Simulated scan of single mutants.
Amino acid sequence: MARGHRPGRTGGVARLPQDATARFLAYVEAIEPVLAEAGRYVVTFNEPNMVGVMAAVRAGQGSLTTGLGGGLPTPHDPTVQALIAAHRATRDYLHARHPHLLVGWTIANQVVQALPGGEAGAQTYREAIEDQFLRVSCEDDFVGVQSYTRNRVGPEGVLPPPEDAPRTLTGWEYYPPALGEAVRHTAEVVGPAVPILVTENGIATADDAQRIAYTQAALVGLAAAMADGIDVRGYLHWSLLDNYEWGHYGPTFGLIAVDRATFIRTPKPSLSWLGEWAKRGELEPPAES
C-alpha cells in the first residue's frame, strides 16, 4: 500500500481500495530516482505471504500465536491478489523505464515437512502459505529466500516443535538445515531460470556461540545446494544490529549488540567470524575459532 494509507475494515473483513495498484505505482514513481541509482536489485514487497497472513489476523481469521503450533492462518486472499497485482505492475513499470534493474520480491520460506499421514495437509499448507507466492516469482528476475526454521505437518495438522528440540528467543525450533531446504524447494517451484538471493537468514539468541554454530550449519547446507547446481547469487544475514522484532527488543538477531539506554553498539564475535568467511570468498565457512 502507499505510504500513509491503511485499508479499512467492514464487518471484520479487510476492505481494500480498488485503486491499490495505482496508489502503489504512485509511490514507486515518487522514489524512482532513488531506485534507478541505488543499485541493480529491487524488492517490491518483503514477505508478501506474511502480509497476507497479518491481513487475515486483522480480519479475525486467525492468530499469529498459532504459528508456534498449529500453523499460520491462511493469507487473506483479497490482500494477496492486491499484492500480486501491485508487484507485477511495479515490475513491468520498472523494466520499461530502467531495463538494468532486476525486480523481484522476498518470500518467508516455511520449510514444510510432511510426516507419515500428513502429506496432503502439508501440500495444502505449503500452497497457501508459500507456493502461490513463489509461482509469481517465475516471471521475475530473481526471488528472495528468507529462512529460519521448519514446520512439520502430521495427520492432525501443523505440529509444534519436538519437546526435546532447542528453541530460539522467538520460540522457533533451532533448525539450521532450513536454509538449504528452503533454497532447494524454491528452486523446484521457480525453475532454473530464476536466480535466488538469500535475503534473510539468522537466529534470535543471546548466545553468540550458538549464532556462529547456526550460521555455519546453515551456510554448509547452502553450499551443498549450490554444489548441486542451484543458482544462488548472494547471502544476507539477518541482522546487522539487534533491532525491534515482533513488538519488542527481546529477540536479538544482530551481529552487533545495541544498548537501548545508551545506544552504544558492541560488535559480537559472530560479526568478525562471518566477515572473515565472506572475505575468503569461499562456499564453506571457516570453523569456529
Rank of each mutant, 00 (worst) to 15 (best):
T124V: 05
T168Y: 05
G254M: 04
I31D: 04
A36N: 01
L68D: 04
E288F: 08
V194G: 02
H5P: 00
D140H: 11
W277A: 13
D228H: 02
G39N: 11
Q123V: 08
V220A: 05
A30F: 13
T79V: 15
D141Y: 06
F45R: 00
L68N: 14
T168P: 02
R135L: 03
A89H: 12
A96V: 08
I84W: 03
T199L: 03
P166N: 10
G250W: 09
E188M: 02
G157Q: 14
I264Y: 01
A257E: 13
E188N: 03
A2H: 12
Y235R: 09
T65M: 10
E200M: 08
P251I: 14
P177T: 11
L72T: 08
R3K: 10
E284S: 11
R260I: 11
D131C: 02
L35D: 03
P267M: 12
V220P: 07
L115C: 10
G70N: 09
V103Q: 01
W246R: 09
I84C: 00
L68M: 06
Q110D: 03
V42K: 02
E163W: 01
H76T: 00
F24S: 04
M226V: 13
L197V: 05
R9S: 13
A22N: 13
A120G: 05
Y27E: 13
Q18H: 15
G229K: 06
W273S: 08
P33H: 15
V57T: 00
A128I: 01
T215K: 02
S147H: 08
A224C: 02
E29A: 15
D259K: 06
G157N: 09
R211K: 12
I203Y: 06
V53K: 03
A217Y: 06
